[in-house]
Write a protein that binds this DNA or RNA. Structure first.
Lengths: 224, 224
DNA sequence: GTAACATATTTGTGATCACAAATTATAAAT
DNA sequence: ATTTATAATTTGTGATCACAAATATGTTAC
């Protein structure tokens, strides 16, 4: 792992201790597709990149391993977990069953300020889609979904759903070469409409459809 | 934490390294209700009880903290996470949406040997219910559900559901003083019938009903 | 050139250490 | 007896060390 990882990561915050900083940084790198499946790391290598000892890296990486985002199966090497069809199918099941419910729980906590934020994110998302910028698409898609989900501060479902995203996000990179992102925006718009109307059923449907579409796109790319 | 924890835990296996042994042991203690909400530990205390250094305890406990089973909120003390109504409601949502699906995925992998095992577990469960033995009820109820779930080796849903059980299991102890366990056995029987008939819809309904009933019992106890 | 063997390096694991921050125990004062 | 100030202890965190196992590197033999 190269030294310039630090430039792709939020600077160290005094609010978080070292292992939290490393954990959040690794999450960010995974969620933005910076960690491509296949490349492998070592504790010492990551530690050198962050300029810390192996100790906080061990805690952060071990946590991500237990969350299924990283793997240490291959002897003494840490890698982004490989995807399989059964993993993918189960991720789909979990997302379809949890995220619509989570968005309904969050709906009542979405105030006008957050709504404005979501509309703005969606605008950026539309632009990323129209220009085919997959990196921005990944980033704003994440921000849009969790902009909704985080409104409710759900103590159980929110962390659960976060681990699901850690598992499939690295594979968005595979979609980069394809031009199938044009049809995705409708569901975000109908989600916003549902939030404005405070219509929980419509929001549930919109999130459900969005997941279905996005995951189907991923599935096609995985099987090519 | 007292030294006699070792007697309540599986002896160390050469297949697992130290931190896995500690993690599995802590899981067992949590799932069997040995760790009651409220009591608090320290890394060094647990390490002394297990006769190991703080290192593997840190890894095991930190993992359980990230899984929501343990808490370190109160300054420098590790405790079994407190339950709240919103946590409970979300656990219910997650269980009802994941476990029936997980059992359907597992159904096709349940062979006659496993079916016999489930029937035997259910017999022990019936006896525990009739004698009001809450400890055995907790143990065999876990074995019954995961006896089904584990058949499919689901790489995503199974670990996810395990973390849900880690979160609510400690609170079964609160039910100990009540006599409301008599009505639970029917759903296990209908689950077994569904497995024999290879009827996935019936299995889904049985698991759903069982969760609903068990969690409702827990919810009443939490609110008394 | 290639396979077989020996050597050197790197790896994760578990233990230990240093240390600041927090907790608890002790003593003093009213 | 209760509060307040001070000292002693304990805590999690991050760094470092020892070590066996695994990997990589070099060397020899055919």
């Amino acid at each position: 792992m190269s030294k310039d990882i630090l430039s792709k990561v939020k600077p160290r915050d005094s609010k978080h201790n070292t292992n939290e900083w490393v954990y959040n940084s690794l999450c960010q790198l995974i969620l933005t597709g910076e960690f491509v499946p296949g490349i492998s790391f070592t504790f010492r290598g990551i530690a050198n990149s962050f300029g810390v000892s192996t100790m906080p890296v061990r805690e952060a990486a071990k946590r991500l391993i237990s969350e299924g985002a990283l793997d240490m199966s291959e002897k003494r090497r840490i890698t982004v977990s490989q995807m399989s069809q059964s993993k993918f199918d189960e991720l789909m099941i979990a997302r379809l069953n949890l995220e619509p419910q989570l968005s309904v729980l969050a709906l009542k906590h979405i105030d006008s300020k957050r709504l404005k934020l979501l509309i703005n994110i969606d605008k950026n998302l539309d632009y990323a889609i129209s220009t085919g910028n997959i990196e921005d698409y990944i980033k704003y898609n994440y921000q849009f979904h969790f902009g909704i989900y985080e409104a409710g501060l759900s103590p159980v479902l929110l962390p659960l759903v976060r681990t699901l995203w850690l598992r499939f996000s690295p594979f968005y990179r595979i979609v980069a070469g394809r031009a199938g992102t044009q049809t995705l925006k409708d569901f975000h718009h109908s989600a916003i409409d549902a939030i404005i109307a405070k219509d929980s059923v419509a929001l549930e449907v919109a999130i459900h459809s969005d997941i279905l579409e996005g995951m189907e796109m991923l599935n096609e790319s995985l099987n090519e």
